Simulated assay, not measured.
Amino acid sequence: MNISYKVQRYIILFGFLTVPLVLLCMFSLYPAVSLFYFSFTEWDGLGFDQKWVGLANYKEIFMRPEIFGAFKNNLYYFVGGILQTAIALYFAIILNGRLRGRYAFRVLLFLPYVLHSVATVIMFKNLYHAEYGSINVFLGAIGLESWQQMWLGNPKLVNYSLAFISMWKYFGLSMVIFIGALQSIPRDLYEASTIDGASSWQSFRFITLPSLRRVIELMLVLTLTGALEAFDIPFIMMLGANGTSTFVIQTVDMAFHFEKFGLASAMAVVLLFIVIFFIFIQRKVLFREGN
């Protein structure tokens, strides 16, 4: 049976549209709708015995201060993310220039991002160990024994230590994104500013920063969402112990440790709306349309 070109074209278009939509519904829309439904039920995650409780799960979330108290640990990752973004921009500007060996430096700085989180945590456990860790051994070797710390055992330091791991791991990604954005800026602008007598700081302030406005906005959104959803590093390293539990860790514990999937689903929905709210505020306050 001969099929005309027009029919073949419609079949191909229909196939390319249908398959992604089916996958989207199966792996995104249906789980999202199910999550909202589960948040109104009391369910242990086994079978189909789900008891409808309405807004009871949401009331429990807002009546238990220890649940929202975990966000104070997320703040460490947010501040670390802001600092990481600024440092990544600095290195991106340097490595975007005519520095000898810049490609090797780019690879070395990007390498931590491609490492698995488990491997990263194992590396830093050897770095932070109180007895044979590299930091304390180095401090002892140069006569600074008083600076030696229990980097993971001290509740006042442990969140800073974990936030630094996150900064180290995701620094390379931020740098590469900035390098790509910097390479899209026409060189003529910098040449014209040099002819006009502009300093390096003035070129950065009036050419580089305005040109990177959208990219910086994207990086701040990624930093905010990454900080609110911090999970892998504190969970793998500490299992949320010693005051390192984040909101997502509490959500996972609520579901799989305490077997309260309904309450955990409600916590996930609350986190979703918190992320949307802060992104909205960020766009309206820091990056007003038309500025």
Rank of each mutant, 00 (worst) to 15 (best):
Y5I: 12
L21R: 09
L21G: 06
L21T: 09
L24F: 15
C25G: 11
L29P: 07
Y37C: 01
Y37R: 01
T41M: 13
E42H: 11
D44R: 14
D44E: 14
F48C: 08
K51A: 04
W52H: 02
G54V: 00
A56K: 08
N57Y: 01
N57E: 02
Y58R: 05
F62C: 14
P65M: 07
G69P: 10
A70N: 08
N74H: 11
N74W: 06
L75W: 12
F78D: 01
I82N: 08
Q84P: 03
A88N: 10
G97Y: 06
G97D: 08
R100V: 12
R102S: 04
L108C: 09
L109Q: 06
V114A: 03
S117H: 00
K125S: 03
H129A: 11
E131G: 15
I135M: 11
I135Y: 07
F138S: 08
I142M: 02
S146Q: 14
S146Y: 13
M150K: 05
W151F: 05
L157S: 11
V158W: 06
K169N: 01
Y170L: 04
G172I: 00
G172W: 01
L173T: 03
E191G: 06
E191F: 07
A198V: 12
S199G: 09
W201T: 04
F204C: 13
I216F: 12
L218M: 15
L224A: 11
F231N: 09
F231Q: 09
A241K: 10
N242E: 08
S245A: 13
T246N: 09
D253L: 09
M254W: 07
F256R: 15
H257D: 05
E259K: 14
K260F: 02
A268L: 02
V269N: 03
L272G: 06
L272P: 03
K284I: 13
K284G: 14
V285K: 10
E289C: 12
